[in-house]
């Protein structure tokens, strides 16, 4: 017969583990983003970007840094963040995305170069990273075309031989990772 105290403790520990596991899975999505827009300096232009981003259904709140043309986006919980829709909104306002940093919390995940990771409803392909284990809040940068400068995109192109990097769409190179062809793959770096 177990000691009631040990039984109580074990139950407590199990509960804590369950709560942690639950909170991790609930948080398995992109929670916020920092976006820098390019091609503008005026507040009127920034307001056009702001208003467009505000119209996205998965955006909860936006803070603007007008001097840096940057926007801090908080996303609603339990919604899928459509990364391409963010870019489209900036371009519709007449400008471009210079930097897009996405933040999400991770349980223990091993990240390797040229490896795919499905996270928060999107498929990510890591480029220019060392093999590592990520946990907790982590920020990663989108390096696909039209999400960064052409120069930056080119720099990362030298770090991968996979053809999906050029188009952002799953190609023959991705099949072995069990990703369906023509699905969107976002290339990111840590």
């Amino acid at each position: 017969m177990r000691h009631p105290l040990i039984y109580f403790m074990m139950k407590r520990i199990l509960m804590i583990i369950m709560v942690c596991a639950l909170s991790f899975s609930a948080d398995a999505q992109i929670s916020s983003a920092k976006l820098q827009a390019s091609g503008l300096t005026c507040a009127m232009c920034a307001r056009a970007v702001y208003k467009n981003l505000e119209a996205l259904t998965f955006v909860e709140k936006i803070d603007t840094d007008l001097n840096g043309s940057s926007f801090l986006l908080d996303f609603k919980g339990e919604t899928t963040v459509d990364i391409d829709a963010i870019r489209k909104k900036v371009e519709d306002a007449g400008f471009s995305v210079a930097v897009l940093d996405l933040t999400g919390s991770f349980q223990e995940v091993t990240v390797k170069p040229d490896q795919h990771l499905t996270y928060g409803g999107s498929v990510f392909h890591f480029v220019g990273v060392k093999e590592q284990t990520v946990r907790g809040d982590k920020t990663f940068r989108v390096i696909d075309k039209h999400f960064t400068s052409a120069k930056e995109h080119k720099k990362f192109q030298g770090m991968t031989s996979m053809e999906c990097f050029k188009t952002g769409l799953a190609a023959g190179c991705c099949k072995k990772n069990g990703v369906e062809q023509v699905s969107r793959i976002y290339h990111v770096t840590l």
């Binding site: 820098q36 091609g39 300096t41 210079a98």
Partner: peptide, 9 residues
């Protein structure tokens, strides 16, 4: 034509 950079275009 639209070529954007931070604070310039």
């Amino acid at each position: 034509i639209s070529i954007d950079d931070v604070h310039r275009h």
